[in-house]
Structure formats: structure tokens, C-alpha cells
Amino acid sequence: MKVAITARGADLSSEVDPRFGRAANILIIDLETMEVETIDNSVTANSFKGAGIQAATMVHDRGAEVLMTGYCGPKAFQTLQAAGIRVVSEVSGTVGEALERFRTGEVQYLDSANAESHW
């Protein structure tokens, strides 16, 4: 199973980026192999509107089933829901710590967006 985590850097020691659509990077971590794939999100982050929609599509394309991030807006959430991706929000600390929390089951899934639309 793969988990997507928004990150300021490119490895497990980097801080979780609280933004989703405008995160610096999105790390896709395969829990079986612990392989980390880094998606550079800068192109998406610079899009004027709808960055979350694009980021959600990318996360889905890489096969992640769970997204861990800080805040998730309504359009991104709608896209993630359509893709069947569950969202853990208000995640902070390092990516490694977030992953640990996920493994030990200390997470709650979001049932609606927890951020406003970016107009």
C-alpha cells in the first residue's frame, strides 16, 4: 500500500508541508518496500487556481490510497474522494513521524474538507 505525504523536502526527515495543492513536494511512500518517490509539485503549486485538483489527480495516478497533509480544500477533497483516497489532515512534524503515526493506527480520517477554497 502507498501513502502520500506533503513535504517541504524530499526525504523522510523533512517537515510535513501543511499545504496540499501548494505543497513543495509530495512524497509517495510504499509501505511494503519503504521506497520513496518524490513528486516535485512546483508546477502545480504555481497554477492560479485548482492546484489541489491537480495534486489530487497526481496522487491518484501514483497509486496512493491515503494522503497525509495539513489542510485540504473542498475541490481537492472532492477529487480525492472520487479517487477513493482517504485523507488524514492536520499532520505536522516530519514525514517519518507522520508515517509512524499511520503505522500505529493513531490517525483519523477526514470526512469533509478542512480548509476554505482559494479564491
Binding site: S47, F48, K49, G50, A51, I53, Q54, A56, T57, H60, K75, Q78, T79, A82, A83
Partner: peptide, 23 residues
């Protein structure tokens, strides 16, 4: 369609197209 749209008003998830009319 989604690749073309500059405004991210379309997203394709699997085989389903999501439309965000307000964008």
C-alpha cells in the same frame, strides 16, 4: 480534455471526468 484545460476545471479519476464549473 483535462490535459488541455488551463484552469484545472476538469480532472480525470480512473475513467470518470470531474467537472469544477466554477473554475
Amino acid at each position: 480534455c483535462a490535459d488541455l484545460c488551463e484552469f484545472n476545471a476538469l480532472a480525470v479519476i480512473g475513467e470518470k471526468v470531474l467537472v469544477f464549473p466554477e473554475l
